[in-house]
Amino acid sequence: MTTATTNQAEAPLLSGRHGLGRDLAALAVILVLAVIGYLLFPNNLALLTRIMAIALLVLSLDLVTGYCGVATLGHAALFGSGAYAAGIAAVHFGITDPLLMVAAGIIGGALAGLVCGVVILRAHGLPQLVLSIALIHLFHEFANKASSWTGGSDGLAGIAPDPLFGIFAYDLWGRTAYVFAVVLLAIVFMFLRLVVRSPFGMLCRGIKEDPIRIQAMGGSPTIALLKMYVISGAVAGVGGALNAVSTQVVGLDSLSFTLSAESLVMLVLGGTGSLFGAVTGTIVFMLFEDLVSAANPFHWLTMVGALLIAVVLFAPKGLYGTVAEVLARRRGAGR
C-alpha cells in the first residue's frame, strides 16, 4: 500500500493513454455494425442509409445538448439546411459530384449553425427552448415560401448525383449509397472523438457544468458555444447532404419541428453526452419505428412512447449510458 502511493507520487503525471487503441476499437465497432446491417437487411439498405443520415443529426445535437447543455427543439434546421444546400447545388448549379454535394451540405449546415447559435445562445433554459422552436418554424416557412429554389411543399426533386469518384453509380439497391454513408459516418465519428476529448471539448464540458467558473478562468462561454454550434451545423449538414444524395429528393420534413423533436428523443433514448449513445439511440428508435409501424401502423407511436417512458424512468442515462455505467462499475468492483 505504502509503496504503491510512493510510486504514484514519483510517477510522471504525463499520461500515456492517447486513446488510440480505443479509437481503433470504436472504428471497428462501427464497421462491424455496418457489415451486420448489410447482411441482415440486404433488401432494406435505404432504411439503413437513412438511419446513418439521422445518426449524424443526432450526433450533431449531442454536441450542443449533451456536451454543452444547450436546450434545443429546433436542431433539424441545421440538418435541413445541409440537405437543401446539397440539393440546390445539384439542381440549380449542376454540382452533382457527391463529394462536392457533401461539401455544400457542410457549408449550408455550418451557416445555419452560426445563425441558430447566435439566436439561441442569447437565452438560457426555457426561453432558449422557445427560441429554438421559433427558429425551426421560421426555417421551415422560409423553405416553403422560396419554392422556386426549394420546390416548396412538393420537395426538391431531380437530384441526380454522379457516380462516386466517377466509378460507382448510385444503384437501385442503394449499395453505393450505403457504403458512402458508412464511410461518412465513420469519418465524422472519429473526427468527433478527437474534438470531444481535445482541450476545446473539455472547455465545453466545463461550460455545461458551470459557465461562471469558466469566466473566472478568463474563458468566454459564448464564443466556445458558438464555435460548437458551427461544428454541430457542419456535422448535421453532412447528414442532410447524405440524405439528399441517397434519396435524390429533399422535402420540407427535413426542416421540421417533428424531426427536431424526434432527434432529441433519440438522443435521450441512447444517452446524452456520449457519441455512442447518440448512435445507439438513433439505431434503436428507427429500427423500432420500422418494425412496430409495419406490425401495427395505428399504435406504433404509443409503443414508442411507452419505450421512451421506460427508458427515462429506469435508465435515465439512456440505453448506452446505463449499460456503459453498469460495465464500468463491474470493472471497478472486480479490481
Partner: peptide, 9 residues
C-alpha cells in the same frame, strides 16, 4: 483552450 485537437494529458 480552444484547440480542437490533441489531448493535454
Amino acid at each position: 483552450a480552444g484547440r480542437m485537437f490533441g489531448n493535454f494529458l
